[in-house]
Design a protein around this nucleic acid. Structure first.
Lengths: 262, 262
DNA sequence: ACAGGGAACTCATATAGACGAGTAGCCGTC
DNA sequence: GACGGCTACTCGTCTATATGAGTTCCCTGT
């Protein structure tokens, strides 16, 4: 049985000017950090904490909401508050778009995930023509209309990322790129077949807190940021042929880049 | 005068099963998104919101703490709750370690910041020998002891990043690398002068919520994640000569990488 | 053996009230 | 005019209490 007693917790310091609910949060955080409560363990119930510290329930709840905001714990209605388990992590290497990775019949996501022993899924396909936003239009060199390809990626049933690719309409119409499934090697393979030999990608990375919509789509727990990656693909003539806007659950990803020292 | 009235806010829907404090947070969030409260504007005071919605003050505070957790607003004791201003952003290009950027008398950070019109500062220097953590040791190929160089970077007085470089002790002792100021071009220039010609860097990027210590060091507002970047520098013989562990305020950075399509 | 009811636990939401402490402006005194 | 204090406003913390709702498990009646 996991430790769900208050044995791991100390007493309050009434002389401290640190707010009581912060002191309690500090103690719980420390106990979690030191492994006295392990991943998935149930913390003491609110009532138990009330008794242990001799404070009101609101104060205890206040402490717990601090830890929840930090993403350290998750509460489950009717069951208890649990130390949040760290999910498996997906590593993205900087050579993930190398041509040699493109000739399989499956998508890069699927191949990688299966290699890592996870069950990959891709859903919520949407492929349609749109007027691009100001930002996307600028990145693509100002096309009036684009093809937008939206999809969401899941690992073992858990959504980890959703992405939208924007391709200038004149490159996409009438090609497999406009199909829901563009075929082996993905749209980069198709673009090259159409004579747009890819030269390089630019990636722009931000990290921020998710919008409520992103929380929903990625089923994010409280306190999990997102990594926002915007990739622009350029062909050998210097033309931007695709912009891919990706939002990833930050707790599910590590990004890897290799830079030459030049 | 900025809109700090409740004019921009609607009424509650008592038939909704959405919690009252969430409804209030939704309305405030929408008003901020739509620009009815602009950056730096003061929101209605808690008392005003209490009167407008006819709920208790705790409920209003609950709503505001939701928005604070999302990083949308900051509260200032005795003054009010304000829409958080977006700070200026520092862009990190993937060629930032190219040799051609190394010959100036100043550090890369200083040069970049001044070019962007900001006032750079570097502080809390600490240079000392240590036993490396397991992780750092592994990345460096297992040295017993390392030189750790810690520093913090500020822009216009605001801390934006702190970093620790770890260099195997046998490379560093008795060289300018062990000095507080390693000289123009930084330690990479010194390493190359010592015959360790740099070949490439590996960068590993994560995003997560900050620890309390990081909140303090970077003076982070609630709801601002950090970008955690671990860079390993390799020389032409494939030896790892430095690991740099950097924690950045995510709202102050955009990372840029250029990948060859290979 | 099993289905159902209900007790006993969990967290979620909300109210009302109190006191503390930081800020800013007004106003009178010196 | 400058200083100092008063006051009214702000958010911060904490208590006490009530109700609702989801989960678990036992016990009882069939």
């Amino acid at each position: 049985m996991p430790a769900q007693t208050t044995a791991a917790l100390g007493a309050l310091d009434p002389t401290s000017d640190r707010a009581v609910f912060r002191q309690i949060a500090d103690q719980l955080r420390e106990a979690i950090d030191k492994g006295r409560y392990k991943e998935g363990d149930k913390l003491p119930s609110e009532t138990e904490l009330v008794e242990h510290y001799g404070v009101s329930r609101m104060t205890v709840r206040n402490s717990l909401s601090v830890l929840q905001g930090e993403g350290l714990v998750v509460s489950e209605h009717g069951k208890g508050v649990f130390v949040r388990p760290r999910p498996p992590v997906r590593r993205l290497a900087s050579d993930r778009f190398a041509r040699r990775h493109r000739d399989q019949g499956k998508s890069a996501f699927t191949v990688e995930a299966e290699a890592a022993g996870s069950r990959p899924e891709v859903d919520s396909l949407e492929v349609k023509e749109e007027r691009p936003s100001q930002d996307i239009a600028t990145r693509l060199g100002g096309p009036r209309r684009v093809l937008a390809r939206r999809r969401r990626y899941l690992l073992d049933g858990r959504p980890v990322e959703f992405a939208t690719s924007y391709i200038p309409l004149d490159l996409a119409t009438g090609t497999p790129i406009a199909e829901p499934n563009p075929g082996p090697g993905g749209i980069y393979a198709r673009l090259e077949e159409l004579g747009h030999r890819l030269d390089h990608f630019d990636e722009e990375i931000r990290a921020r807190m998710p919008s409520p919509h992103e929380v929903k789509t990625l089923r994010l727990a409280a306190g999990v940021p997102v990594i926002h990656l915007i990739r622009t693909a350029y062909d050998t003539e210097g033309r931007a042929v695709e912009v891919c806007d990706t939002v990833m659950a930050a707790d599910a990803y590590v990004l890897n880049y290799q830079l030459p020292a030049t």
